[in-house]
Nucleic acid binder design. Structure first.
Lengths: 218, 218
DNA sequence: CTTGAATTAAAACAACTGTTTAATACACTT
DNA sequence: AAGTGTATTAAACAGTTGTTTTAATTCAAG
């Protein structure tokens, strides 16, 4: 009984995540969700109360399952440059993950661009820990007495570059052309962002330098 | 007759812009738009055919009225550093403009994060010209033989930092706290992005340097 | 004043929305 | 075997959606 009853609830949550991520809260309909979840229309209200509660549950599920860069313990002997490189690459991997279940990140990004009631929990459980991780790396890369506010801005500069390639990907693709954009793949983007940011912090050569073997596939 | 007939059509377009910018295409209702435009419900279909055509017209109107950084002619003797500084500042001013009519930029940003059929025109008429302007400045800031692809990535790095403070402003505010975020005002952001980017290109001191009088209120 | 087209208005349209109800099916205990 | 509480279903609910229809109104030209 428990196995079966939990099954439909879970199927519903999974279907809700996919559809909310694709269409957003308003445009998604509970009938679509129930159809994909192979459940009756009344199931949403039976298990979750109403549509909004289902949405919040889906967002929660998304940020609970994706805790990649939270509480990382860096291997000994790593330079802060290496740490930043891995941070950027891993962020991009999560973000651009074409594999399943892709809706987790998409739903979170939607919440980040167009926040609802669910975004407070998202910030506390997911974003703030990641921001702290990044803040630690930045602290290693800069002078000890760097102003806290400036440290935050540096973090924003790094993260914003990563977010761009997901949030504004359609526009970027339209701008440079579909074929050319295939060269804007994950390794290329990751290396550019890392080099750009390290150079900005005075911890690497200008991004315009000829050689580019900053991080030979650690 | 012409004056009056154009009046309601324009009122409708203005109201549509505001409401579409605030709620998005799906969540905005033609009844809300007509109420704000002081027109009958049938007016939308009478003047524009259907809701989607009204939306596209609103997006068009938005990107036609905002052509600030397109085809700029830089004053003689300006260094590329100064040009970049002005570019960033002006982008942020348009983007963060709290003054009227703020819906133009908000509607375009919505289209950039969540593109519909209207975004192709938007790219060609607004985004591509601005990208060309920025590309010119970057060309001045780097070696002549810089790879085109890398030039584009540098442009993305700069623009993404600007976009961040609009698109993800709610999250950023939630992260650093409302009071502290008041210090993330336009001049502070503009200076940080300019210094960060110039340093990345090897055209300025690291962003972590103590002094910050890069651009004393030109 | 009359004509006739353009504009506005009120009402109705069918389709869809989230949600609720009431009946049924099922597994379990007593 | 009857009873109990949970899970699922089909049907209906009331409200909103975009759109259409039909009629009233406006208003300049003849």
């Amino acid at each position: 009984m428990d196995a079966l009853q939990e099954q439909t609830r879970d199927r519903l949550l999974e279907a809700a995540g996919e559809i909310f991520a694709e269409y957003g809260f308003q445009a998604a309909t509970v009938r679509d969700i129930c159809r994909r979840g192979k459940a009756n229309v009344a199931a949403v209200n039976y298990y979750f109360g109403d549509k909004q509660a289902l949405y919040i549950a889906a967002v929660e599920r998304a940020h609970c399952s994706a805790a990649g860069l939270i509480n990382v313990v860096w291997p000994k002997g790593w330079t802060p440059q290496q740490k930043l490189s891995v941070f950027v690459r891993q962020w991009l991997e999560q973000q651009l993950a074409e594999n399943l279940p892709s809706w987790h990140m998409r739903l979170m990004l939607r919440e980040m661009s167009d926040p609802t009631d669910a975004c407070v929990k998202l910030v506390e459980a997911y974003i703030r820990p990641m921001a702290e991780t990044l803040r630690g790396v930045i602290r290693e890369l800069t002078r000890e007495d760097l102003a806290e506010r400036q440290g935050r801005m540096i973090g924003f500069s790094i993260v914003s570059q990563c977010l761009f390639y997901k949030v504004h990907r359609p526009i970027a693709e339209l701008l440079v052309g579909r074929e050319e954009y295939t060269h804007f793949n994950l390794p290329a983007i990751a290396e550019h962002i890392t080099r750009f940011s390290l150079a900005a912090l005075g911890q690497g050569p200008p991004v315009t330098a000829t050689t580019s073997n900053l991080e030979p596939m650690s």
